[in-house]
């Protein structure tokens, strides 16, 4: 449990912050709507994410998990970005 969902901040991370992370953000937003969870999802690159301290959850790809270790955020890795079931399952496990 992560407490008050209204202030939930999630970041979607890829190497550059323009491609993969944007797709991940869109699919995560879709899933959050279905789960009726209010949260903001921002797409960003791995360098910016490493400096961030205020995200509860970081969504990223298995390749980048190691680069995001040691942050206060929970890091969730998504293998198939268009598999809404995978995203739903992993976000539910973290949020509900």
């Amino acid at each position: 449990m992560l407490g008050d969902n209204r202030d939930m901040k999630i970041i979607a991370v890829c190497g550059m912050g323009i491609g993969t992370s944007v797709l991940l953000k869109m699919n995560a937003e879709k899933v959050l709507r279905q789960l009726e969870i209010e949260a903001s999802v921002d797409a960003t690159n791995v360098a910016v994410a490493r400096e961030s301290r205020d995200a509860q959850i970081i969504l990223t790809t298995p390749d980048l998990v190691d680069q995001l270790k040691g942050l206060p955020s929970e890091v969730i890795s998504i293998e198939h970005f268009f598999d809404l079931e995978e995203i739903t399952e992993k976000l539910s496990a973290a949020l509900l």
Binding site: C14, G15, M16, G19, T20, L23, V46, T60, T61, P62, D63, L64, H80, F81, F82, D83
Partner: peptide, 8 residues
């Protein structure tokens, strides 16, 4: 950054 670009 590795082969994460294989998104699906």
């Amino acid at each position: 950054n590795g082969p994460y670009i294989v998104i699906a």
